Computed example of a mutant assay.
Amino acid sequence: MKFNEMMKKIEAFLQETPKDIFDFSGEIEDTLVDDYDEMFSEQPDAVRCLSEEVPDICASAEPGMSQSEIEIFKRKLSVEYEKAKKLVI
């Protein structure tokens, strides 16, 4: 299930954030685009929720971001992650 895989990756990222988040952000952004239909069939409301803000959050990531920039990224992603978790059926 693609949706569960993506949610586990986000959760792991939020718990153990790497020093460079660029690869992670690209992977999540690509997953939301490439696997949208499959994930939507699994969890439509949660995927719709994630697709509203997470691509923009991920697009804001740049290589070599400062720790404070990474913390802002994490806070924004965490908010959307928690919203999506509440919509899982």
Rank of each mutant, 00 (worst) to 15 (best):
V54Q: 02
A46S: 05
E82R: 03
G64D: 12
E42R: 13
S60M: 09
G64C: 14
Y81S: 03
L32F: 13
F13S: 00
Y36I: 03
K2C: 02
K19F: 15
V88H: 01
E29Y: 09
D20W: 07
T31E: 07
I72P: 01
M1Q: 09
D37V: 02
S25L: 08
S41D: 09
F22V: 10
N4A: 06
V33R: 15
A12D: 07
G64W: 14
E53V: 08
I21T: 09
I57H: 02
S41F: 08
D35L: 15
S60I: 14
E82Y: 03
M7W: 11
F13R: 01
L14P: 04
I21D: 01
I72N: 02
M7P: 04
M65F: 12
E80W: 07
I70Q: 04
A12F: 10
E5A: 07
E53S: 07
M1A: 06
K76N: 07
L32W: 03
A12I: 14
I28R: 00
N4W: 13
M65P: 02
Q67G: 01
D20N: 09
A46V: 04
T17Q: 03
M65L: 14
S78M: 12
E38I: 10
F24D: 01
F3A: 08
I89D: 11
N4K: 15
T31Y: 10
K74H: 08
E11V: 11
C49Q: 11
S78W: 06
I72W: 04
D37T: 09
L32H: 06
M1K: 14
S78C: 05
E16N: 10
E16D: 09
M39I: 09
R48P: 01
Y36D: 00
